[in-house]
């Protein structure tokens, strides 16, 4: 069997890719995709540790996170649609009126 550490390392790489993508992309939708990627890497960590400890609770937590992600996507996409109606753009840098 593959050691847990490899899975954690993989999750860390995926997470970092997601974070970099979140910062580089300027389309709101692509940023959102990156957020999903980061969320999945967190899931991977949970599942890997569940096997390491022989405990099903972490897997159940992942199940709940999946549901939560569904809710999050529904709201997030609704917000994107609402913003798009107002601005006719999905570029985050145009949404910078809230500054000090």
């Amino acid at each position: 069997m593959v050691e847990t550490s490899y899975y954690i390392a993989l999750a860390g790489i995926l997470f970092s890719i997601g974070a970099v993508g979140f910062l580089m992309r300027r389309s709101v939708i692509q940023m959102f995709l990156c957020v999903e990627l980061m969320l999945n890497s967190a899931n991977l960590v949970l599942v890997a540790f569940a096997r390491a400890w022989g405990n099903l609770e972490a897997q159940t937590a992942v199940f709940i996170i999946l549901t939560l992600a569904a809710a999050e996507v529904a709201i997030g996409l609704a917000i994107i649609v609402a913003i798009f109606r107002k601005r006719v753009s999905t570029n985050v840098d145009e949404l910078s009126s809230l500054k000090g």
Binding site: M1, T4, S5, I8, A11, F15, S16, R51, A52
Partner: peptide
């Protein structure tokens, strides 16, 4: 970040044998 996480990942010591836990 990726390097740091990967580095810490290999610090992890399994609490029990993998086959048994699985």
């Amino acid at each position: 970040l990726a390097g740091a996480i990967a580095y810490t990942a290999f610090l992890f010591k399994a609490p029990k044998p993998l086959e048994e836990a699985a």
